[in-house]
Nucleic acid binder design. Structure first.
Lengths: 343, 343
DNA sequence: AACTGCCATGTTAACGCTATCATCGCATAT
DNA sequence: ATATGCGATGATAGCGTTAACATGGCAGTT
C-alpha cells in the first residue's frame, strides 16, 4: 500500500479544457464567473472537471490575480484556549468567505514574532490579525510595507496600527479588583507571569494596582510565577508562596483561570477555606470556572466575538475597498461573580 | 491613519537584482543555495534585499518549484483542546523544517470534511494529516489522486490510507473499563455522543462494551448526550439521566474529561458521593483532571507526541523520498487512576 | 599555447492560472 | 441590407519564481 509518487501529473485547467472542447480560459470562467458562460458550455466544462477530478491550483490563481486568498493570524501561543476561540471565530467567518487561515504561533516571543511575520508575509496574506501586543519596530515596518489590513485583537492599543477589535486588559484588571474592593476585601494580591513574557497579565496587574491605589489600599502583594501563566501548577506553587510571604492576604486575583484553578485546589489540599480565608478570582471564564467547588469568579472575555468581528471587518474592507466606519471596536468584558469571592 | 492601499507595488527579486547589479537568478540562488554564490556577490545581494525589505513570494516559488511548502491538517473540531496539542506538535516540527501548516476545521461533519479537503488540496499541500476517522469515499478518492503522504492520527485504522501515528480508541475503551472491573465495579455505564458525530467516543464505547461482555457483566447502561461530547453541560444532564434510568450504576465512563467534569460537579451538587455512590472516569487527562476534588481518573492520550511524530514522518518522507520503516506507530495510552474511581 | 574542467553567473522557458483585449456571431435597430 | 450592440468565447501576455541549460572566465595540465 505504499504508492504515492513524489509528484503526480496533476490535472490542470488545460486538461479540462481539452476534454470539454473549449479553451482553458472558458474553464477558468466557468469556475469563477459562471454567469458569463452559456449554460451549455458550463455543463460541458463542469462534467469534464468532475470526470477528471480537477482541483484548481490556488497558488497559480493567486499569482495571476494577486489575490492569495490567505488571511494570517499571529498568536502568542497555541496552548491558550481563549486564543483558540478567537481562531475559531476567524476561521468560521473567513472560510465562509473563501479565505484560508494561516496560523502562526509566536511562542510569546517578539523575535519569533518578527521571524514568523516575515515568513508569513511570503504567502502574501490579504490581511493580518494580531493576537499579540508585542510587535517589535521591525515587525511594524514589515507590516507597514505589506500595506494590508491589520486587525489587532485582545488589546486596546493606544497607537493602533490599523483596525482593532478588542478590549482593555488594563480596564479589566481595574474593574475586577475594584469589584473585590466593593465586596470588602482589602489585602488583595495578584498572581501573574513576568512582565516581559506575559504582557496581558502585566496590563491586568497594572489596572489592579491602580484600583487598589485609588481606594487607598496596599498594592504590593504580588507573586510572579513562570513564563506563561497558563499552567495549573503555577497556581499551586503561587498560592503557597503567597500565603507564606503575605499571610494577611484576603483575596487573590490570578492572571488566568488556569492558575486560579491551581490556587483553588492547593487551598483545598491545605485546608485553607475559599472564600472564607482567601477569595480567589481569575480571567477568561474558562469552561470549568462555573463548575468548580467553589465556583470560580472570573472575567468573561469576548474571545469568539473578537475573532468573528475581526474577520467581518477584514472581509468588508477587502470587498468594499474601504474601511468600515467602526473599525475600532471595544467589545468590553464581563465580571462574573461566583462563590469563590463571596464575602 | 487609513492608508494601506489596495495593492502595494511589491518588491520582487528583479528589483533586488537591479539594485545589486546582478541577474534575478543570482538573487534566487543567494537566498536558496548561498553556497553556489561567491561571497562578494552574496554580500551585495543580501544588502540589496535588506535595503528593499524584499520578502520572496512563496506562491510564485511554489508554482515554479512544485513545492508548496504547505502541510495541511484536518481537524474534526477546533474546540477540542486535545486536538490542539496535536496541532501544536505538528506546528513546532513543521515550522522548524520550513513548512507552513494549513488548518482545517471539519465541524465533525463528513460533508464538511470532503468540501474542505477539496479546497485545501487547491493549495497543493505536500502532505496531509488527518485527525479524523470519517473520511468519505469521495474524500478518499481526492486523497488518492493527490498522491501525497498522508498521516492518520488519533486512531488505529484497520485499513490505513498511508502512514499512521495513533492509538486504538477501542483498546483504550476496553482497557479503561477492564480496569474498572478489576477494581470491583460491576454496573458500569457509558456516557457519550451519538455514534455518527462522535466516532472516537463510539469506538471507546465499543471497547467498553467488549470488556463488560468478556467479564460477563451487563453492557446496556448507556446515556447519549448532544452532538459533540465536549460540553460540560452534557455531563451535568447526562449523569442525572443516568441515575434516573439506571440507579444501580456504580461506575460511569465519560467520553471525555469535559463531560466527566460536568458529571462530577452535578454529583456534588446533588450530594451523590463520588466515588462512594458512583465512580467516574474520563478520557484525555485534561489539565484539570488531577486538580478536581475528587481527582479524576482519566486516560492519558499521546496528543502532542502524535503531532510531533506525524510531522517527523512527513519531513523524513519528503526529504528522503522514501517512507520510513516504522511509518505506522501505535503510541498507546495510559490509564491514570485517581481518587474518583477509588473503590 | 592549446585543452580540460570547474566555478560563478546569466538566459530561457516553464509552472497554472487570470486580466485584458480581440474576435465572432447573431439579434435588433435603422 | 447595412449598421450597432452585446453576449460568448478565444488568443495572448503576464504574475514572480525556479529548473535546466548555456556561457564565460580562469586555474591547472600537458
Amino acid at each position: 500500500m505504499n504508492r504515492r509518487a513524489k509528484k503526480s501529473s496533476s490535472v490542470t485547467s488545460r486538461d479540462v479544457a481539452a476534454r470539454a472542447g473549449v479553451s482553458l480560459m472558458t474553464v477558468s470562467r466557468t469556475l469563477r464567473t459562471p454567469d458569463l458562460v452559456s449554460p451549455a458550455t458550463r455543463q460541458k466544462v463542469e462534467t469534464a472537471a468532475r470526470e477528471l477530478k480537477y482541483v484548481p491550483d490556488l497558488a497559480a490563481g493567486a499569482l495571476s490575480s494577486k489575490r492569495s486568498g490567505h488571511v494570517a493570524v499571529l498568536l502568542p501561543s497555541l496552548r491558550h484556549s481563549g486564543f483558540l476561540r478567537t481562531v475559531d471565530g476567524l476561521s468560521d467567518t473567513l472560510r465562509a468567505n473563501g479565505y484560508h487561515l494561516l496560523i502562526g504561533d509566536c511562542y510569546y516571543s517578539p523575535e519569533e514574532q518578527t521571524e514568523l511575520l516575515r515568513l508569513i508575509l511570503g504567502r502574501r496574506p490579504e490581511a493580518i490579525v494580531l493576537v499579540s501586543s508585542m510587535d517589535s519596530p521591525e515587525a511594524r515596518e514589515l507590516l507597514d510595507q505589506a500595506a494590508i489590513p491589520i486587525v489587532e485583537t485582545w488589546d486596546w492599543p493606544s497607537d493602533p496600527a490599523d483596525m482593532v477589535v478588542g478590549f482593555s486588559q488594563y480596564e479589566a484588571g481595574y474593574a475586577l479588583s475594584e469589584s473585590l474592593i466593593e465586596l470588602g476585601y482589602c489585602n488583595i494580591g495578584f498572581l501573574g507571569g513576568p512582565a516581559h513574557t506575559d504582557p496581558y497579565g502585566e496590563q491586568r496587574r497594572k489596572g489592579h494596582v491602580a484600583a487598589l491605589e485609588k481606594a487607598g489600599l496596599r498594592a504590593d502583594i504580588h507573586v510572579t510565577v513562570s513564563d506563561t501563566p497558563m499552567e495549573i501548577q503555577d497556581g499551586v506553587t503561587g498560592v503557597s508562596s503567597l500565603r507564606r510571604r503575605f499571610p494577611e492576604t484576603d483575596a487573590l486575583v490570578c492572571a488566568t483561570d488556569m492558575t486560579a484553578l491551581g490556587a483553588l485546589t492547593e487551598c483545598q489540599r491545605r485546608g485553607w477555606q475559599v472564600p472564607g480565608e482567601l477569595a480567589i478570582a481569575g480571567y477568561g471564564n474558562f469552561d470549568f470556572a462555573p463548575h468548580l467547588t467553589p465556583a470560580l469568579t472570573s472575567v468573561k472575555l469576548p474571545s469568539y466575538r473578537m475573532g468573528k468581528q475581526a474577520a467581518e471587518l477584514i472581509v468588508a474592507q477587502i470587498d468594499n475597498g474601504t474601511q468600515p466606519a467602526d473599525a475600532s471596536r471595544n467589545l468590553g468584558f464581563e465580571i462574573i461573580h461566583r462563590q469563590s469571592t463571596q464575602p
